[in-house]
Design a protein around this nucleic acid. Structure first.
Lengths: 232, 232
DNA sequence: ACCTGAACACCGTTCAAGT
DNA sequence: ACCTGAACACCGTTCAAGT
């Protein structure tokens, strides 16, 4: 299954300057980068089900089968599109200049925003390996926590907890967007079956970012390094 | 989009006893329940991509188009299968008998286990509305938190935080299972790019349940009601 | 090295029809 | 009320071939 790693030729490097000039009248040449970029456009516009090798080729002005020279199969298009969307254009201010808590909050909010800009990314994440951009973000998260004083023995728990929280929050958010009026539809069915969550208007509360921040604060309280306590 | 709620006839009620006896030599009659049950089997066996209206009909011994009398379309098969798998067969012991903290931990661990038993459910959740069984679990969660003393103003944050954490944890888990050796493949690429998470062996740590519990403890620390503090 | 069209084995769903 | 087959407009991918 995971064996066939042969087909994807690495080929984004433009050799050494000689570049045949692109004919101005036709589409630019096919390339991995262009394929991935267009795939993201298509996913943004049409969602996961909207990405089709045929439609992708149409947008690129090429034949369907031309894609397969650059790409193993449709799965790998998903993988590439997913990771491409999660690149972290680091915070401009010097890292470490501020409180570790706000550093982490900033990082996670940026992460959340990146995923919500491309809602399809959330549904892809549950079934795909972690690409380099995700790993970079995890690395940065780990480094920050470590510098903040989280013991090595507690580091994995802290990293995964924050990641889990983040992923769940974006899932919840996109799930509500995509299912649209259904939330409204299920809420007002008055009285009987769900008294507590109706009283608290759980499904009507749309202060997503506020809820995200408060919950994150709570989690950070529990994760914060203290002199005596370790996460037993 | 959400308008067409017409097609799905409610029809599981067996009228009043007269039931034509099922011919022992042929398949039992088609029914919504049987369709959903078989869909779950198929999803368990073949994953999300393995569920096909044609394959489903085959398993049921019927023509493809027969399904469409019981069901609006393939989407609704997904919705029904998802919710069917999340039913909570409540804890046998009387609720409220124990510490609220262990009550909640038990609930969430049961929830986690239910989803991991059907890994496809995780990837479906990000794009689908919340069915009645999910709402029931959220209600129970809310009730328990409320009884434990969480203020109404903090209730939604507490519920969603736990839910987010839970969803993220199961996503992470299934993502690692499905992508198989890729974790191993990305980890040993030694040295350079991800020093922190390699030092902590983040991607090799497979004590999933332990990590889940410890992170949950941390979150509960932050969410626990205290006399003075509210989640500001 | 890069691109192509024809062909294959699939899909979900509409429709008009059967009992 | 319940089930069906034929047909339509799609899919992803293999293959053999073109430049």
């Amino acid at each position: 299954m995971a064996a066939k790693r042969s087909g994807a030729q690495g080929k984004r490097s433009q050799r050494m300057g000689v570049e045949p000039p692109p004919q101005p009248n036709s589409e630019p040449a096919l390339s991995l980068d262009r394929i991935v970029l267009t795939a993201v456009e298509l996913l943004d516009a049409q969602g996961v089900d909207g990405l089709t090798m045929r439609r992708l080729a149409d947008r690129l002005g090429s034949g369907v089968m031309s894609l397969y020279w650059h790409v193993d199969n449709k799965e790998s298009v998903f993988d590439l599109a997913l990771d491409s969307v999660l690149g972290y254009r680091g915070s401009p201010q010097i890292v470490g200049a501020q409180d570790w808590r706000t550093e982490i909050i900033d990082m996670l909010e940026d992460w959340r925003a990146s995923m919500l800009r491309h809602p399809w990314s959330v549904s892809l994440l549950s079934s795909r390996a972690l690409g380099p951009n995700i790993l970079s973000r995890l690395e940065l998260l780990g480094k920050t926590l470590s510098r903040a004083g989280v013991a090595d023995a507690d580091l994995n728990v802290a990293i995964w907890s924050l990641w889990n929280y983040l992923m769940g929050a974006t899932i919840t958010r996109t799930s509500f967007d995509l299912s649209g009026g259904d939330r409204a539809a299920s809420q007002p069915r008055a009285g009987e079956p769900y008294p507590t969550i109706e009283r608290s208007r759980l499904l009507c509360d749309d202060d997503w970012i506020g809820i995200f921040r408060k919950g994150l604060d709570a989690l950070l309280v529990g994760l914060a390094p203290s002199q005596n306590r370790s996460l037993k």
